[in-house]
Design a protein around this nucleic acid. Structure first.
Ligand SMILES: [Mn+2]
Ligand SMILES: [Mn+2]
Ligand SMILES: [Zn+2]
Ligand SMILES: [Zn+2]
Lengths: 162, 162
DNA sequence: TATAAATTGAGAATAGTTCTCAATATTGTC
DNA sequence: GACAATATTGAGAACTATTCTCAATTTATA
């Protein structure tokens, strides 16, 4: 995987082109947001992002954040996932393969996984229903390896709703 | 599949037992909500439900609805799904097998499907990550058979993100 | 420098949901 | 039935995440 610095400059170039194509500007605020977002690989929420903007005299308003994220989404740089029903998380997609998530309901840990088999079967189901899939989300909720131990969750639990 | 009337009385019995076990009461409001919910099989949103309550002098407040739905959820009678990111839908689960959803982004149509193969592979992935799954959601978004035709969506579109 | 177009931030507005609390209903007991 | 203890309800306030409004500012271009 490329270094964050290189990723960042590629992402900026991508964003710049996207914006240019729509007669939009790569303003300092948008550039700053991009900088922050592509300086880490974790999932982030809007609140976090807003916090991270508030350092060094500089700041970006919530309004601008709410306006910018959908732009980055359309540019294919990030995507929104709602692993916790209450607030949306965003994640860098520009340098990542598609993946799905497991979320530990005890500690909140997020595990990413790719599974070609599942994806293939999804396509089959779509074909069967004559449905053209443009995107999908698969979320598994439960107990991570660590919480399973500390909470003594039985493996049987898993089979109940599997 | 059993008739709605029989389902309804079973659901009421189930809810009554659940409530009794927690020293809660099956009030007229709760009973009325159950009546409305188990009189149809479609997915419903809170707004709809609230509307349906407002007939015949009788009414149930939003506050009560918001308090009652989580109870029914815990009782295993309904579940919440958020197919449209903006507002939650609920659906009767008491007489239905587990299933997942396809949602048409053009017309909003919801298609339900069951796929044992996918579920099995999910379990495998969990095993691999030593993760105890308690629930999952799989959502496919795209174009239904009808909208595909009227909008002349190419089948190739589907393969892009599949 | 002048002009037009795009952008920003503050704060108002919206909407979905939860909370508060006084009034009401239910349950079990005498 | 009367009573005390508990649970429930609805109205409206409160909260929170998100969107909208608009005047001031920035940027691009000529
Ligand atoms: Mn991820
Ligand atoms: Mn369904
Ligand atoms: Zn955990
Ligand atoms: Zn459709």
């Amino acid at each position: 995987m490329k270094s964050l610095l290189i990723q960042k400059s590629h992402a900026r170039e991508c964003f710049r082109n996207f914006l240019r194509g729509k007669n939009l500007l790569l303003t300092t605020e948008r550039s700053r947001l991009l900088d922050i977002i592509f300086s880490q690989r974790r999932h982030f929420c809007i609140y976090d992002l807003h916090q991270m903007c508030q350092v060094n005299q500089q700041k970006v308003s919530l309004a601008t954040i709410y306006r910018t994220l959908p732009l980055m989404e359309k540019a294919g740089l990030i995507r929104a996932v709602n692993l916790k029903a209450d607030n949306w998380l965003y994640e860098n997609t520009y340098f990542k393969h598609h993946h799905d998530h497991m979320v530990c309901v005890a500690c909140g840990k997020i595990i990413e996984f790719e599974n070609v088999g599942i994806e293939k079967m999804q396509s089959k189901v779509c074909k069967k229903h004559d449905f053209i899939m443009t995107e999908h989300t698969l979320e598994l909720r439960g107990y991570c390896s660590h919480c399973k131990k500390t909470r003594k969750i039985s493996a049987l639990l898993g089979s109940k709703t599997a």
